[in-house]
């Protein structure tokens, strides 16, 4: 039941943490792009958000029409406590697992001819 979070889902949840109540598709995409340099499509963000909403880690609320996007409404997402817990669990898991291994990892990666 408690499936681990995917990498992309983690990125999105972190974006929600940063944006608080200003989190909607475009701002989430911008936040991920600004922090990681990765370009993400709006569709990918929404499918991931829909997955997260289905697991009740986030909740959605449709805002009122906004003129700067042609009168289209925004859908704001909010991180739920369950989502925050899942995110920190998944980050902790990585931390715990990687403890003491990072130097060794860097060594192996350094040996690898790119």
């Amino acid at each position: 039941m408690d499936r681990a979070l995917g990498e992309f889902e983690q990125l999105i949840l972190f974006a929600l943490v940063e944006l608080e109540e200003k989190a909607y598709g475009a701002s989430i995409g911008r936040a991920i792009e600004r922090r990681t340099g990765r370009q993400v499509s709006a569709g990918a963000i929404y499918t991931a958000l829909a997955r997260l909403a289905a697991r009740e880690l986030v909740t959605a609320e449709v805002g009122s029409p906004t003129p700067e996007r042609g009168g289209r409404r925004r859908k704001y997402y909010r991180l739920e406590p369950a989502g925050a817990a899942a995110l920190s669990r998944s980050v902790d898991l990585m931390h715990t697992m990687s403890k003491g291994l990072l130097p060794k990892l860097a060594g192996i990666a350094g040996d690898e001819p790119q």
Binding site: Y24, A42, R69
Partner: peptide, 16 residues
Amino acid sequence: GAEAEVVVGDIVERYI
């Protein structure tokens, strides 16, 4: 439906 509105809204917003 509703998904189109928000997704398209985001895309347009980025474009502008």
